[in-house]
Amino acid sequence: MKTKAEGITNIISKISDASEDEARGIVQLSSGLDQISSVVQSNTATAEQSAAASEELSGQANVLQDLVSKFQLKNEE
């Protein structure tokens, strides 16, 4: 009877250890997902800033093109 009780205690101990390992893995996974979320938010903000800058540059390029088109060069003949 004592041997069976020891065996059950051993199994319960192994289950407890495995549960603790699993809990640590879940914590690590959660931390990793939080880091990924942070990077995605940062990338989104950077992409929005880049899009705004591109739009501004495009507008400035159009203004510059209009200004340059008013200049006429003499033909060198």
Rank of each mutant, 00 (worst) to 15 (best):
M1V: 09
M1C: 08
K2V: 07
K2D: 08
K2C: 12
T3N: 15
T3P: 01
T3Q: 15
T3L: 15
K4D: 09
K4N: 12
A5S: 11
E6W: 08
T9C: 09
T9P: 02
T9H: 09
N10Q: 14
N10A: 08
N10F: 10
I11R: 07
I11L: 15
I12T: 14
I12C: 13
I12W: 05
S13V: 00
S13L: 12
K14F: 07
S16M: 10
S16L: 12
A18F: 05
A18S: 03
A18Y: 01
S19D: 10
S19G: 15
E20S: 07
E20G: 06
D21A: 07
D21W: 13
D21S: 03
E22Q: 14
E22M: 06
A23I: 05
R24N: 15
V27S: 04
Q28C: 04
Q28P: 00
Q28Y: 08
S31Q: 00
S31M: 08
G32A: 01
G32K: 00
L33I: 01
D34F: 02
Q35C: 09
Q35I: 04
Q35V: 02
I36Q: 15
S38T: 07
S38I: 02
S38P: 00
S38N: 13
S38Y: 01
V39P: 00
V40A: 02
V40L: 15
V40I: 14
Q41M: 14
Q41R: 12
Q41D: 14
Q41P: 00
S42C: 09
T44A: 14
T44F: 04
T46F: 04
T46M: 10
T46D: 05
T46V: 10
A47M: 01
E48T: 10
E48P: 00
S50W: 10
S50I: 00
S50E: 12
S50V: 02
A52G: 09
A53P: 00
S54D: 14
L57Y: 11
S58D: 05
S58C: 13
G59M: 07
Q60F: 02
N62W: 07
V63G: 07
L64Q: 02
Q65L: 09
D66M: 10
D66W: 03
D66F: 11
V68E: 01
S69T: 00
S69G: 03
K70N: 06
F71Q: 12
Q72Y: 07
Q72K: 08
L73V: 07
L73E: 04
K74L: 04
N75Y: 02
N75R: 10
N75T: 01
E76Y: 07
E76Q: 03
E77H: 08
